[in-house]
Structures are given as structure tokens and as C-alpha cells.
């Protein structure tokens, strides 16, 4: 297990490095002069030249990349052009809100998706199974920003059950949780459908296997067979799927944060793009990438913890 974890961590570092290279290329290829953009139209050529040198833009490309790369690994993601604060600090301030949103989305999708999928598999071929199937496809098809807008209109504006905007009072966990309900639903609802479909399919496969027949031949109660003997195996592919799905949830989070006017990395990137605050965009995207890679690693480790066969192969 330890060797596996170290190996996967090494791979994660490589992935982040490649992501950095791509990110650097992207910024480098954006047309226009960053110094000119930062200083605005009234700056003199001398001022622009000064800033270019300060930003290291006069150096060869590979030197620029190396500077960016080595600084980033030391946690230095440059400075926010507008506030002149370190980008790392600014992003880290916003990160907890986005993390809460993602975990809220995962909670919705897991607590609804797994039981629904399991139920549909046990009741396969019945009306209940069909209804779950149609609903799953429906929620997968609806984009998360549409869910966000309708959730806001129905539950916050019309019914006034839940708050419409913000992330709640700092320090007040209860208030923050109430503010999290609708945005995390917007992020997680589509995944309820994915997970329900996935769990149903893998449950049906597992329920056909020989060891389930053995469990029945031993007279074990059907409930024990479904939840202990079959579901434990059937959720393994779902965990892997969720690890990959976190990428999509991160992009849904951008919309949810904008619609619900919540702080968070998505909102930060959105605002930074509008103000052409490139160091902030780069820093936030990089942090998001690292988050994605790390959560994927966590998903793989969870699979290892749940499946002794995977564990011993490592």
C-alpha cells in the first residue's frame, strides 16, 4: 500500500508538471503584451519596458518557463496585478469555499445516486426501475447552470426556504451549511444520475456472479447479500468515476459560484479573466489542477482500501 501510494504520488507530480507546461504555453501564446495590458493605454513605452523586465518577459522563453516552474514549486505563483498580494494567498483564501462546494456536490450525488442505483438494480424491469432510469438520464442532460438558476428561483426566490446568495456568516457552520445546500445541489444533481446508472449496471453484473449464488446457497438474508456482498463490489467503479468526475464538478462550481454570488476559486478565475489579471488566472487554474490530481489520488486510494485484490496487487 505504501509503495503504491508513493508511486501514485510520483505520477501525480509528473501530471502537475505537464499541466504547468501547458498552462505556461497557453499564457505565452495569448496575443498581446501582458505589460501593456497591465499598465493600460496611457503608460509610456519606458514604463512598459520597465515592467517587462520586472516580469522577466525580456528573457528567452525557456528561462521564463524555468522561472515560472521553479517559483511555482516553491509556492510562489506571482502577484495579483490589482491588489499586489501574492496569488497563492489570494487563491488559498478562496479554496475552502470551492472545496466545500465540491464535497457538498459529492455528498448529494453519493447519498442519492448509490441508493437509487441499488434500488433500481434490485427492482430491475419494474416501473420503479424505469422511473429511476428516465430521471437519471434527465438530470444528466440538464446543465448545472440551469439547475442553479431554477434552484435559486424556486427554493430561494419563490418559496424563500433557503438563502439566495453568499456563503453564510464566517464562523457560523450552520449558516454556511444552509448556504451550501442549493449551490452544491447544482453541482451534484447531474452526478446523481451518472452514479445511479453506474451503480445499477455494476450491481446487475455483480448479482449475476457465482459468489452471490453461493451466498444464496448459504441461506444468507437477501438484504445482507445486496448490501454487504454485492454493493461493496459494485461501488468500486463508481469511486473511480467520481475521481474523474471531480474535474467536471470543478467547472460546474464556476457557474454555481457565479449564480449564487459565492466566494470561491471559480468566481475568482471568472473575475480575474474579466479584469485580465493573468497571474491570478494562472495561479487559480494551477491550484485547481493540483486539487483535481490530488482528489483523483484519494479516489484511487479509497478503491485500494475497499478492494483487497487491488491492495495486494500494488
Amino acid at each position: 500500500m505504501l509503495r503504491y501510494s508513493v508511486k501514485r504520488l510520483g505520477l501525480a507530480l509528473v501530471i502537475v508538471s505537464v499541466a504547468m507546461l501547458l498552462l505556461f504555453c497557453m499564457i505565452y501564446l495569448i496575443p498581446g503584451d501582458p505589460a501593456a495590458v497591465a499598465l493600460g493605454p496611457r503608460a509610456t513605452e519606458a514604463m512598459r519596458e520597465g515592467l517587462r523586465i520586472k516580469m522577466g518577459l525580456d528573457k528567452p522563453v525557456w528561462v521564463q518557463f524555468w522561472n515560472f516552474f521553479s517559483a511555482a514549486w516553491q509556492g510562489d505563483l506571482g502577484r495579483d496585478v490589482l491588489s499586489d498580494r501574492p496569488v497563492a494567498t489570494v487563491v488559498m483564501e478562496q479554496l475552502p469555499y470551492t472545496l466545500a462546494l465540491i464535497f457538498g456536490g459529492i455528498s448529494w450525488s453519493v447519498t442519492l445516486g448509490i441508493p437509487l442505483g441499488c434500488w433500481a438494480a434490485v427492482e430491475r424491469g419494474t416501473v420503479a426501475d424505469r422511473i429511476v432510469g428516465v430521471l437519471s438520464v434527465a438530470v444528466i442532460a440538464v446543465p448545472s447552470f440551469v439547475v442553479a438558476i431554477y434552484a435559486l428561483l424556486i427554493f430561494a426566490v419563490a418559496l424563500r426556504w433557503l438563502p439566495a446568495i453568499g456563503a453564510g456568516e464566517p464562523g457560523d457552520i450552520g449558516d454556511q451549511l444552509v448556504h451550501l445546500i442549493l449551490p452544491s445541489l447544482a453541482v451534484g444533481l447531474g452526478w446523481v444520475g451518472y452514479i445511479a446508472r453506474m451503480v445499477r449496471a455494476s450491481m446487475l453484473e455483480v448479482l449475476e456472479s457465482q459468489h452471490i449464488r453461493t451466498a444464496r446457497a448459504f441461506g444468507l438474508p437477501e438484504r445482507m447479500i445486496t448490501y454487504r456482498y454485492a454493493l461493496t463490489i459494485a461501488i468500486l467503479p463508481t469511486v473511480t468515476l467520481l475521481g474523474v468526475g471531480i474535474g467536471q464538478m470543478l467547472s460546474s462550481a464556476v457557474f454555481a459560484e457565479i449564480v449564487f454570488a459565492r466566494p470561491g476559486v471559480g468566481k475568482l478565475v471568472y473575475d480575474a479573466i474579466l479584469t485580465r489579471n493573468y497571474p491570478l488566472v494562472t495561479g487559480a487554474v494551477l491550484v485547481t489542477t493540483i486539487l483535481f490530481v490530488l482528489l483523483n489520488l484519494v479516489a484511487d486510494l479509497i478503491v485500494g482500501a475497499l478492494d483487497p485484490r487491488v491492495r495486494s496487487r500494488l
Binding site: S209, Q210, H211, T214, A215, Y229, I233, P308, R309
Partner: peptide, 11 residues
């Protein structure tokens, strides 16, 4: 049963 590997629950 015939196939002992398949007959026991793997997890």
C-alpha cells in the same frame, strides 16, 4: 461449488 475462486466473495 465447482470454482472455489468464483464461489467466495472477493472483498
Amino acid at each position: 461449488f465447482q470454482d472455489p475462486m468464483g464461489a467466495l466473495n472477493p472483498v
